[in-house]
């Protein structure tokens, strides 16, 4: 089960989440959504700590975040 999920059709390719991610695992890809925006992608799901920074910063509520319970903050 992925720690973050994207509603790509809502992404506007603004890239604010990329800046906010403390693990630097997000990037704007080449794939375009129906609206013609390049959408967000995660490069290394493993390194994601479910910290929700990307989701908090996103103006378009593109990202949902999930956390393994018992998974200490910042653990693998």
């Amino acid at each position: 089960m992925d720690k973050i999920k994207f509603r790509s059709e809502r992404c506007k390719g603004c890239g604010l989440c990329v800046i906010a991610c403390p693990k630097d695992v997000l990037k704007i890809g080449a794939e375009l959504n129906r609206a013609g925006y390049p959408v967000i992608e995660i490069t290394d799901m493993e390194s994601c700590t479910s910290c929700t920074f990307c989701a908090e910063i996103c103006p378009d509520v593109v990202i949902s975040v999930f956390k393994k319970m018992g998974d200490k903050k910042g653990g693998k």
Binding site: E9, V65, F66
Partner: peptide, 23 residues
Amino acid sequence: MKQVFKRPESLVDVPTHFCPGCH
């Protein structure tokens, strides 16, 4: 896995007209 971030219910689930990166 528990969801730790989701869309608030009071926010209607529609795309917005705001420009990319507008706060």
